[in-house]
């Protein structure tokens, strides 16, 4: 039997859609917001998957324990919230650091990644040198700040 109500399903689906849409952007800040929204939506999903709403799982008032909401997903989601907080702030710090060092907060294309596929002789790395110019010419034009980050 379906225990999930339509409203919750729509909210979760909508949050996931927005979260992934933000994650697909190139601005690191949007990525961060996407990460936050995805965190919310995942916690909500975990909680909703446990079943329909119930009473808070706190005993001691002579309550019927069968009417409790499932406490285990709550405990999981609780720690997940705190960890998401920690990781989001870490991401934020990375955004800030990237801004400080590179002067932008965008995810540029990884030129090194691209070069791998453009070498003629993948087995002999020594030969790749001649290919580099052609490779970087076709990318966004901006050199990524790889060498600057130490």
């Amino acid at each position: 039997m379906t225990t999930l109500d339509l409203t919750s399903a729509v909210v979760v689906g909508g949050l996931f859609a927005v979260g992934f849409h933000l994650l697909l952007q190139r601005s690191l800040m949007r990525l961060l917001f996407g990460f936050l929204v995805l965190g919310h939506s995942t916690n909500l999903l975990v909680l909703l998957a446990a079943g329909p709403p119930g009473r808070p799982p706190v005993t001691g008032h002579g309550q019927d324990r069968a009417s409790f909401a499932d406490p285990l997903p709550q405990a999981m989601a609780l720690t997940a919230i705190v960890i998401t907080f920690g990781i989001s702030i870490l991401l934020l710090a990375l955004v800030y650091r990237g801004w400080l060092l590179l002067g932008h907060d965008e995810v540029r294309d990884d030129v090194e990644d691209r070069r791998l596929g453009e070498s003629e002789h993948p087995r002999r790395p020594g030969d790749v040198a001649g290919q580099q110019e052609g490779a970087s010419g076709r990318t966004t034009g901006e050199t990524p700040g790889k060498g600057e980050e130490r």
Partner: peptide, 27 residues
């Protein structure tokens, strides 16, 4: 991007409904 994320959102919503209906064992 818009279409893809909308599709994934719909998928998650459907999965959530399906998963909540698929519970057989007690928690």
């Amino acid at each position: 991007r818009l279409a893809l994320s909308a599709a994934v959102g719909t998928l998650v919503a459907l999965l959530a409904v399906a998963a909540s209906a698929a519970r057989r064992d007690p928690a």
